[in-house]
Every structure is written in C-alpha cells, then in structure tokens.
Design a protein around this nucleic acid. Structure first.
Lengths: 227, 227
DNA sequence: ATTGACAGATTGTCTGATAATCTTTTTAAT
DNA sequence: ATTAAAAAGATTATCAGACAATCTGTCAAT
C-alpha cells in the first residue's frame, strides 16, 4: 500500500499557472527589469483571459517582483543599489537565523539532507552544467530555509531570493567566486553538523556578505539608473 | 511653498480601497478568523464589482491574512499555536535588528520622533482611551521600523504585525501588562538614545518575547483548534 | 450506516462594454 | 520656430453577464 499516490494534480487553477509561468519568465531573464507587461499581450502570449492575468499580476506585485502604477500597468521591478544592499542585509539576517536554528534544532535527517545537497553542489560545480548548478544551489538553500523550522522565515527568504534574482547576476559567474562559494557553503554545513549555532549563523552571514560584495560591486560598475 | 500638499488622494484605484477596507475589517475583528468571505456578499457589501473584490483578495492572500482553497473561496486566516510562536520569533529577530540599526545609524531627528512617540504612549495609557493607545503604539512601532533604514525590514514587519493582529489579542488587555509594556518601551528608547546597538536589540527582543509570552499563554488556555 | 445520484451554491474564467487616465500627435497661438 | 492647448489613440480599471467546473448537502436505495 503506497503512502503516496498523488494523481497528477491537474487542478492548480489557471491563475496559479500563470503566476508560475511569469515568475519563471522573469527569473530567467525572458522579461527584463523595467520592461512593461502589457495585459493584452500577456493574454495572447499565454492564451488566457484578462481575469487570470490580472489576478496573477496582483500576486506578483505583492511579491515585489513587479511594480505597477495606476493606469500605467505593471513593469518588472528594478532594484536600485541601495535596495540591493538592504536586500542582502536582511537576507543575511534571516539566513543567519535559519542556520543557527538548524544547528541547534535540526534533526539528524535534516543534516543528512544538507550534506547531500553540499555534495551535489560540488558535483554540479565540477560538471560545469549551469542548470544543474542552479538546481543544486536552490536545493541547498531550500534545505537551509527549512532548517529554521519557521514557516515565516521560509516565506520571507523565498520572497527575498525571488527579488534578488531580479539582479540577474548569478554572483557565481564571477571568476573565482564559485570556489569560494563552495568553501563557504561547506563551512556552513560543518558548523551545523557540529551543532555550533553561533558559528553556523556567522558562516551564513559571511557567505551572504561575500555574495553581496560581488553583486554590489558589479552593480556599481554597471550602474544603469534609468527613470 | 508647501512641500506636502496632498489632496484627499482621490485616485487610489478602487481595488486598493477595497484592500484597505477589508484589511481594516479583519484587523478590528469585523471578520473573524475562520470566517468565509463570499465573493458576492463582499461585492454587495462594498458596492463594487467582482473584479475589484477578487483582485483585492489576491493581495490579501499574498499578505497572509486570508487563505483560499481552490473552488472553496477565501477565509480569514487562522493561526495555530505553533505559527504564533514562529510569528513572534521572527518578529523579535527583525525588530531587534531594527532597534540595533536605529541605535547605530538613526539621526537625531529620528530619535526625537521616537521619544515623542514614547511620551504620547504614556499619555495615551494614562488617558485610558483605547483608540488613542492603539494609535500611539502604532506610531511607536512605525518609528522603530523606519529606524532600520531598510525598506524590506519595514515591509516584513508590517506584514507580521498584520498577521499577529489576527490573534485579536491585544496583549495589553492583560492586567498589569500595560505598565510593563511601557517600561520595556522606555528601555528601548533609552538604549537607542545612548547609541547602544546591542542593548537596543536586546531590549526589543525582550519586549516582543514578553508580549509573546502573554499572547501564547492566552492562546493555550483558549485553545480552539478547529478544523 | 454507507453509497450514489441529484440539486444548489460558489468559484474560476472568458468576453464584451464603458469610463478613466496616460501618451502622443496635431493644431493653434505667440 | 517654440510653446501651449486640444484632439486622438492606447491602455488600464471596472462592471456585467455567461458558462463550465467543483464543492456541499440532501435524500433515497441498498
């Protein structure tokens, strides 16, 4: 008797699918920050009615990845240098917390999962396949977020990740950064495995701060403060 | 030439007004947690079309104050004991951060505003007028949030406050709690004024932890784990 | 008591229409 | 020619009506 027999869950209201599609399209750069999202075009492009598109917009707007001005319609959100700074700051705070909680209250199974994610991350890095690396990274962060044992922290971090993605600046593309990144992640995992809460928090913060440094540096150089 | 001359903000698309109205109605208990929000009823009640109501729903859903299941419609969110715990935990974390930032980077003007808020809070407490007390409390927290100088922290804390409000349990109704509350708030303000970051953070955390203790205690007693 | 069919209620989604508002172009005045 | 005012065009905001899909409760049959 299998415990998990889910029929392909076809339901998931159209609107949700639209949300997912658009979120994805924005995350992978199909729609770029600043770009207008014209209702009618989206309807045609997606083959759905205005209702679904408009409701999905409200959701994405609430998530912060699109911004809309009354009577002008939505645009993909842009992030200023200052906002990026703040984004990374609060991310460091929350992820540090998650790391600490993980270290102090995570189950053995949680830790095993985290270690597996680290291993896969290394393998992915070695393989050089971009998509695999991204998946591995997400798996790691997902595990870490769950470690907080706090739904709200998870929600907030997910939202933050989505918004940081807008920077379209996979900090890992920076030469040499990847190696450091791996080392930092291993430090995090190690601290957690050793049940050292404060050290885990510090490692998380350090990791994010390093990523922030690279991203902000890049942002400053390619500063494009448009309207 | 006045720098701020806002005409009654007539614009604010209908949808936004609906959001505000409903948020308010939920915050003050007009709609109680668990209660269904039937689309048609809301339309009649508010005198607006389904479009506006549905889009407002998506917003409130994203904020977490309503929850909706496909084909069953939205209900005012309920909060379990564990969720309440988590809510207060992350609130303590963020408010602690805000307090620390305030102490370390707040301007003299910010501090003056905070002090004024504290004074008004005391006066409001003395006056015994409930509404005034609530306003004063909000003013204080608003000021504190701004002290973080971080839009995202502000957004997150606002969202958290809205959700905690669902508990419909103004921790201050607890006998004797108000006096403690005032003392704690004064401690926060003092630490900030002394530019003592860590102390300010600790004071904020302590304040929230105390509030959490009262709220959770109350929740446990009146535990009503419905479906 | 359990099952199954049926009716009623409500949501999900589409379409068309109209008003409100922004943007651009054209026209008019200096 | 330059600037201001007016007209046109485009897009959003909102409503209303319709229909399918889905949930819920009722009631008879086993």
């Amino acid at each position: 008797m299998q415990t998990d027999l889910q029929i392909s869950r076809q339901s998931a209201t159209l609107r949700v699918k639209v949300e997912e599609t658009l979120r994805q399209a924005i995350a992978n750069g199909r729609f770029k920050p600043g770009q207008r999202l014209v209702e009618r075009e989206l309807c045609e492009m997606l083959g759905v009615g205005r209702t679904s598109v408009r409701e999905a917009m409200r959701q994405l707007e609430a998530e912060g990845i699109i911004t809309s001005y009354p009577h002008k319609g939505p645009v993909v959100s842009t992030i200023t240098y200052e906002e990026a700074q703040q984004l990374y700051t609060v991310r460091a705070l929350l992820e540090g917390f998650a790391g600490q909680q993980f270290a102090e209250h995570g189950t053995a199974a949680d830790i095993a999962t985290l270690q597996a994610a680290v291993v896969e991350f290394e393998a992915a890095a070695e393989s050089g396949v971009g998509a695999r690396l991204i998946d591995a990274k997400n798996a790691f962060y997902n595990c870490l977020m769950d470690g907080s044992k706090n739904v709200f922290v998870r929600q907030m971090l997910t939202a933050l990740h989505n918004r940081i993605n807008l920077l379209r600046m996979t900090t890992m593309t920076q030469p040499g950064r990847l190696a450091h990144s791996i080392a930092e992640i291993k430090d995090i995992a190690t601290a957690i495995q050793n049940r050292n809460g404060p050290l885990a928090a510090a490692a998380c913060k350090f990791h994010i701060d390093q990523a922030a440094k690279v991203a902000l540096e890049y942002l400053r150089k390619n500063a494009a403060p448009e309207t």
